[in-house]
């Protein structure tokens, strides 16, 4: 089972990204759970999202304590708390212009994307969740890129689906290189 943890602030679409990744895995014929950090939501406060993906039905409903990937949507959340529980060999994907971070655990692969800039260009506003989904998939290959694009098209909660798909693909291309 693969577990991905998403870090963002309320209103940035952090959980939507977690849900899109889960839907992408289901599109690919796999099993997935996606859930937010439980409890009240406040705009601007730090929030978490989680995605579990497996080839078999997932029955474990306990909290995610260790994960294979962490995605940080907001660079003000880029600190050592973001890497707690991240397994060696995992992916750390951040919305930043930095080329590395001082708290990166040994054996963790770092991927950076200046998603603010891409989102401003394509959406005209700083909403980076689909861009960071593209960056994660480019870094990790956890789901096929086409299945994630389909998830963006079909999710009723995604506004400006066509533009978000374009942003997602642009981010994916940029990280893939």
């Amino acid at each position: 089972m693969i577990s991905i943890r998403w870090h963002g602030r309320g209103g940035q679409g952090c959980f939507t990204a977690a849900r899109l990744l889960g839907a992408a895995a289901v599109n690919a014929g796999r099993y997935a759970l996606a859930f937010p950090s439980f409890g009240p939501e406040r705009r601007g406060a730090p929030v978490l999202g989680f995605t579990r993906i497996d080839d078999a039905p997932i029955t474990d409903r306990s909290e995610v304590s260790e994960c294979d990937g962490v995605v940080v949507l907001d660079d003000t959340l880029l600190n050592d708390r973001a890497v707690v529980g991240l397994r060696p060999g995992g992916w750390f994907v951040a919305n930043t212009r930095l080329s590395t971070v001082p708290f990166l655990p040994e054996g963790v692969r770092f991927t950076a994307l200046d998603a603010w800039e891409l989102a401003r260009q394509i959406l005209g506003k700083p909403i980076v969740n689909t861009a960071m989904l593209g960056a994660l998939i480019a870094a990790s290959n956890v789901v096929p890129v086409s299945d994630a694009a389909k998830a963006i098209e079909e999710d009723p909660g995604v506004k400006q689906a066509e533009k978000n798909k374009a942003l997602f693909l642009k981010a994916w291309h940029q990280v893939t290189g």
């Binding site: 849900r19 889960g22 839907a23 289901v26 099993y31 997935a32 759970l33 996606a34 859930f35 937010p36 439980f38 409890g39 997932i58 409903r61």
Partner: peptide, 12 residues
């Protein structure tokens, strides 16, 4: 349904 664990978790 268990609050949040089921109500707010997405799956196929």
């Amino acid at each position: 349904l268990d609050g949040f664990v089921l109500t707010h978790t997405y799956e196929a």
